[in-house]
Amino acid sequence: MRRFVRENSIGLVFGLLFLIVLVGQAYAGLAVFNEAQRASGLPDVAFWRYVTSASFGVDVAENWQSEYLQFFLFIVLTVWLLQRGSPESKSLHKPGRETDEEQKIGPYADEKSPEWARVGGWRTSVFANSLGLVMGLIFLGSWLAQSVAGVAAFNEEQLSERQDPVSWGQYVLGADFWNRTLQNWQSELLAVASMAILAIFLRQRGSSQSKPVGSAHEATGVEG
C-alpha cells in the first residue's frame, strides 16, 4: 500500500484536494445562495437541493471547461509552438509531430510500447492524438453542461424578477454566458503564458515543471 501511494501520489493528492475544495465550494455557495434567498423573502434551501441545482452546476461547469480548454490548447499548440529557455517547451530543433522513429510508432515500437502504437492504421492515428482528443471532448462536454445549467439558472432569476425566460440559443449568444466564459478563459491563458515564461528564469528544485537549478536560462525542453 505504501508503495502504491508513493507511486501514485500526484493523482491521489490532487484528487483528494479536488474533493475537499469542491465540498468547500458547495458550502460557501450554499451560504451565498441562501443569503440571496432571504434578501428576496424566500426560504433557505437544503445542502443537497443546492448541489443539484442549476446555480451550483453552472459554477462548477464553467471552471471545468476553462481548465480543460487550457490543457487542450497547451497539448495541441505545443506540438508546433516553442519557447526558448522554457521547460514547458520542446527542444528548439523538434517542432512539429516528429518522426515515427522518435515517437516509437509502428516498426520503431519496442516491446513495452502500447499495442495501438505498434499496429499502425487508424488505431495508431487515434492513439497518437488521444490525449488532445479526450481533453477537447471533456472541454466541449463541460462547456455544453455550463450552457445548459447556465440557461436554467438565468431563467430562474428572470422568473423571480417577473421577466420572460430565454431559450438556450438566446442564452449562449447573450452577455451572461460569455461573461462567465471569457473571464475564465483569460485567466487560464494568462496562467499558461506565465508558467512558460517565468520557468525560463526561475527554478523550483526537484520539480518536474522546472529546469535543474544550475541549468542555463536558454536551456530549452530540460526538466529537473
Rank of each mutant, 00 (worst) to 15 (best):
Q83C: 10
R84M: 01
Q83H: 06
L77W: 07
F14D: 10
L82G: 02
A54C: 10
R6I: 05
L12Q: 03
V60I: 15
P43T: 03
V58S: 08
S40A: 15
R49Y: 02
Y50S: 02
V79Y: 08
T52C: 00
V45P: 02
A61H: 07
V13G: 02
Q37S: 13
V76M: 03
Q37D: 11
G15K: 09
Q65S: 10
N34I: 04
G15P: 06
L12M: 13
D44I: 04
T52S: 08
F74G: 01
A31W: 09
W64F: 15
R6W: 03
L16Y: 05
V76L: 05
R49H: 07
Q25V: 13
V45G: 01
A26R: 02
E35L: 10
S66Y: 02
G85S: 09
T52W: 07
L19D: 00
G57T: 10
S53V: 08
A39P: 05
N34Y: 04
R49G: 03
L73I: 13
S40K: 15
N8M: 03
G15H: 10
L19T: 12
S55I: 03
S53P: 06
V76H: 00
V45N: 00
A39H: 12
L81H: 04
W80D: 00
W80M: 04
A28T: 13
Q25P: 04
N63F: 12
Q65K: 15
G41T: 12
L42S: 09
G29L: 08
V51Q: 02
E62I: 05
Q25H: 15
W80G: 06
A46C: 00
Q83M: 09
Q70A: 11
A36M: 15
L30H: 06
A31T: 15
Y50M: 01
G29P: 12
E67T: 15
N8F: 05
A61Y: 07
L81F: 09
L22N: 11
W48K: 08
R6P: 01
Y27E: 01
S9K: 14
F33C: 04
S66L: 04
N8K: 12
Q65F: 15
L81V: 11
T78P: 04
Y50G: 03
V58H: 14
Q70F: 13
S53R: 08
